[in-house]
Amino acid sequence: MLKDITFGQYYDATSVVHKCDPRVKILLMIAFIVLIFVSQNMFSLAFACVSVIFVLLISRVPIKLFLKNLKAIWVVLAFTAVINLFYSNTGKVLVSFWIVEITTGGVYRAVFMALRIILLIFISSVLTYTTTPNSLTDGIESLLSPLKYIGLKNAVHIFAMMMTIALRFIPTLIEEAEKIMNAQKARGADLENGSLVERVKALIPILIPLLISSVRRAYELAEAMECRCYNGGVGKTRMKQLTLSVSDLYAIIFIAVFTCGIIGLNIIF
């Protein structure tokens, strides 16, 4: 069901992670992603696992919400694992049939790659669950602000505004899509059966109303923004100023330890 997609939704709680500056969180997430990719052996990956789980726990977001995000991408996960299973032919042969062999090396690789993806999903979910979409946007805007000096001032603002609105309307549009789907099903539309072509065709009665309503929403939103004195962001101030706090210091120390750990374990083993 579309409703099961919770990725990109803020979870309200009080935790060190929630308190961190969005800029620090974005940079840390990027660092995490890079480091997860550079961890080359089981030891450094295990260390990454422990660190990610540590972050999940201190974020105070229910673990099942993270697991739910995995459910949404299990196909990708399974696909990656299977490809990697056959990719490597090192180690002992476990199973062999026709021209395919599954080796211990393959199994190792499959688990390794799947774990990496899981960690990536987890760590990026931490960012979206603990950061309100708007402060995320503020963070990105602030990080991109050096671009202003090369004449892209307006572009940065427009990008940030687009992100804000997109994040705000994703749940609304998902709900709307579901309503339209149900309405067309009630008129006898068959969305589940038929050939690929038929199924694509069956989407038209859903996509057209969705498109039309999005245009209507966009128009009404533009009017509402105008009524709230929006004029393209000229002279705009912010209620929430981004300031670094103690939590950010902890976060930076944590990532330093994490970086050293991964690199150290990569070198040692």
Binding site: Y10, T132, P133, N134, T164, I165, L167, R168, T172, R216, R217, E220, L221, E223, A224, M225, R228
Partner: peptide, 12 residues
Amino acid sequence: FQNPDNQLIASI
């Protein structure tokens, strides 16, 4: 306006 959904800009 009529539709509250189409007037709210931010997610918080």
